[in-house]
């Protein structure tokens, strides 16, 4: 009985709260109540913090070959955990744990870089298509259709292979290009829906300038799905960047600590020390999972249909 009363009070409180909040605050509140969102946010936050402070907390230099680890290194034996080296050494006698940590930073740079570039280009294309309509829309959308019709990994591999010398930048650009058409289509669709909405008609009926209609009335109302998509894209961007490195299309410098590259290099030692492949793979999966969970719950939170 008391619990029922209590629940009722809570609901009234929640209602009272919602009376004084904006759409964004409302979405945040709903996120805080969803366990999936919290798990996703926790994983993402953990990844972000580790990636940023990795160089400072890494116990050893990730590029240095340590005599302690080289001592026992043979083709059929790679040293496991020992004092000072939490996860032992890798195939070249470097500290595996430090390399894993610093790899988080590489993934973050590639993921965020590729997503940001893709987001900006995609929004420019999609925004122009949605704002102008007509033949501008037709041409831009045919262009994105062509890009979408090529499998994204294949496209990324082709672009990365075009560069005469692979590098971190070519990986970022290759992955970014594959995300452009997704953002473009998404924003264009949302803008098109806004173009026919009542409040845009109402703004037009007030003689508001086209520019204002686009930037104040259409664009802000179209951003929700794009925000969600960029979270989800971060996950795929990290996986794709790892795939490119794995295939040897990234920076050719073999000493670089990067999860995809580490995965690729450890292939030959999978019988000797499977952890060398296992941990980078798990790291990639956890980060991708974190961004996906966060993105999905963000999508739910921002969906007006889910408003109480």
């Amino acid at each position: 009985m008391t619990s029922l009363l209590k629940r009722k009070q809570q609901r009234v409180d929640a209602l009272a709260e919602s009376a004084g909040t904006s759409l964004a605050a409302d979405a945040v509140r709903r996120m805080l109540r969803s366990p999936v969102a919290l798990i996703g946010a926790f994983l993402v936050l953990l990844f972000l913090v580790l990636a940023i402070i990795a160089p400072f907390i890494a116990p050893k230099d990730p590029y240095q070959r340590y005599p302690e680890l080289l001592e026992d290194l043979r083709p059929d034996f790679i040293p496991g955990p020992m004092p000072g080296f939490l996860l032992g050494g890798d195939e070249l006698g470097r500290d595996f744990f430090s390399r894993l940590l610093v790899g988080a930073q590489q993934s973050l740079i590639v993921g965020v870089g590729a997503t940001l570039i893709g987001l900006v280009l995609g929004m420019l294309i999609g925004g122009a298509a949605g704002a102008f309509g007509g033949w501008v829309d037709s041409w831009l959308m045919r262009f994105t259709d062509i890009m979408l019709s090529i499998p994204s990994l294949l496209l990324a591999i082709s672009i990365a292979a075009l560069a005469s010398r692979g590098s971190q930048t070519t990986v970022i650009i290759a992955v970014a290009v594959t995300t452009v058409p997704i953002f473009a289509r998404l924003l264009r669709g949302a803008m098109l829906a806004q173009r026919h909405s009542d409040h845009v008609l109402a703004a037009t009926a007030l003689g508001v300038r086209r520019r204002t209609v686009v930037f104040r009335h259409m664009l802000p109302n179209s951003l929700g799905p794009v925000i969600v998509q960029s979270t989800l894209t971060l996950a795929t961007a990290i996986i794709e960047a790892a795939s490119l490195s794995f295939l040897g299309l990234g920076d050719p410098d073999p000493s670089r600590a990067e999860w995809g590259l580490m995965l690729g290099n450890s292939q030959r030692y999978i019988d000797v020390k499977p952890e060398l492949a296992f941990y980078p793979a798990i790291a990639i999966i956890i980060v991708a999972l974190g961004f996906t969970l966060l993105g999905e719950s963000l999508r739910e939170a921002l969906d007006p249909k889910n408003r109480r």
Partner: peptide, 23 residues
């Protein structure tokens, strides 16, 4: 465009959807 809103005003049917929800 210069006349709409200045010389000619219009009130629509559905007041919720006629207002921009995010500003």
């Amino acid at each position: 465009r210069n006349r709409r809103g200045r010389d000619l005003g219009m009130v629509f049917q559905d007041p919720l959807s006629s207002l921009n929800p995010v500003i």
